[in-house]
Computed example of a mutant assay.
Amino acid sequence: MNSGFIGGRDVVAFYAEKDYPSAKGYLCLAPGERWADLLTDNYFANTGEAVNDRIRSHRWVTASEYGLGSRLT
């Protein structure tokens, strides 16, 4: 759930590996997106691997840091 304030670092980025290496897979939860209904139907951007039980780190980022196809739904 992302109930943070809009502006600045308001997107939560989730990563498949610890310490935020985006090359190993990532996805984002935008502000106002309250929850992801199921992680079994979501895939990490740039790797295509299933997200379920594979998130190892997260951090707050700006919306401009990540592109289309990386949204958690």
Rank of each mutant, 00 (worst) to 15 (best):
M1Q: 14
M1T: 07
S3I: 12
G4S: 15
F5E: 11
G8H: 07
G8M: 06
R9G: 04
V11P: 04
V11Y: 15
V11R: 06
V11A: 01
V12R: 13
F14N: 01
Y15W: 07
Y15T: 03
Y15Q: 09
E17H: 05
K18T: 11
K18I: 04
D19N: 15
Y20M: 06
Y20I: 00
P21K: 08
P21C: 06
S22W: 03
S22M: 03
K24L: 04
G25I: 01
Y26V: 04
L27E: 05
L27P: 06
L27T: 01
L27N: 02
L27A: 05
L29E: 01
L29S: 08
A30S: 12
P31C: 10
P31I: 13
E33H: 11
R34F: 00
R34A: 08
R34Y: 09
W35D: 07
W35I: 05
W35C: 09
A36E: 01
A36P: 01
D37A: 13
D37Y: 14
D37I: 08
D37V: 09
L38A: 13
L38G: 00
L39C: 03
L39T: 15
L39S: 06
L39W: 14
T40V: 13
T40G: 15
T40A: 10
Y43Q: 13
N46P: 06
N46M: 11
N46E: 04
T47S: 13
T47L: 12
G48I: 10
A50E: 10
V51E: 10
V51Y: 06
D53L: 10
D53A: 02
D53H: 15
D53Q: 11
R54I: 01
R54E: 09
I55H: 00
I55F: 05
S57T: 08
S57V: 10
S57W: 04
H58E: 14
H58V: 05
H58A: 14
R59D: 07
T62I: 02
T62P: 03
T62A: 02
A63M: 08
A63Y: 05
A63P: 12
S64Y: 08
E65R: 06
Y66H: 08
Y66A: 04
L68A: 09
S70W: 03
S70Y: 01
R71H: 04
R71D: 10
R71Q: 07
R71Y: 04
L72T: 01
T73R: 04
T73V: 09
